[in-house]
Every structure is written in C-alpha cells, then in structure tokens.
Amino acid sequence: MSIEFQSNESGNGTATLVITGDIDMSTSTLVRTHLTDLFKKKQKAIVVDLAKVSYIDSSGIATLVEGLQWSHNNNTKFRLTNLTPMVKDVFEIARLLTVFEVYDSQEEALEGI
C-alpha cells in the first residue's frame, strides 16, 4: 500500500499536510516522520488534511494522538480537516472527535490562526 504526502508551508507559520492513501501499521510510521518534520520547524499551526485517506487503523489514530500531545507540549495548533466517513467513524468509535479540533475544510481550519 503506497501513501503520499504533500506539505505546504505558508509564510505565516502554518503548514498543511495532505495525506493520500491508507494509514495502517505499514504506513503510520511515515505519517509520524512527516509530522515530526513539521513540528521540528516550530510552526504556529499544523493542519492535517485527510480527504484522501479512506482507511485508518489504531496505529494511525495513535500517530495523530502523538501529534496532538506534541502540539499541547509545544504550544502549536494541531487541526484535522476533511475526514472521510470511514475515518470519522473510527474517531467516533474511539470517542476522539471532540478531543481533536476537526474542521470541514482547509480554509476553515486555517481561519483565525
């Protein structure tokens, strides 16, 4: 299973990471690597766009929880956007939808940063 990443860093200290593919045990370490790179650049905010992620498992959720914890410890905003129905359902089962800041679009996620 291949996974692709596209990150866009704006001049105002925000970064958007667009992930394409399934996030499972074989790919979640790559997600972690990309998120770590962005966190190390000390962005004000990181938005993860999941519009093209049709599957996520517990290792993917764990990686995003790590990102959330990192953001709390480093005073960075960490937002998720464009959750597909499957991904949203998994977040709901794990009761994490209210734990993360979740938005319907990148534009909404970037507002007010």
């Binding site: 498992d57 517990s58 290792s59 790590e66 914890q69 794990a94």
Partner: peptide, 18 residues
Amino acid sequence: PLDKIEPGGLGTYFMNEI
C-alpha cells in the same frame, strides 16, 4: 480506558466494541 488520551491500546478496544 478511553478517557486516558494517549497513543496505543485502541486495536483491542475496536474489536471488543464492534
């Protein structure tokens, strides 16, 4: 426990819940 927000431990929860 789900109220403990931390990475890991969800796989077994998903199986038992679903």
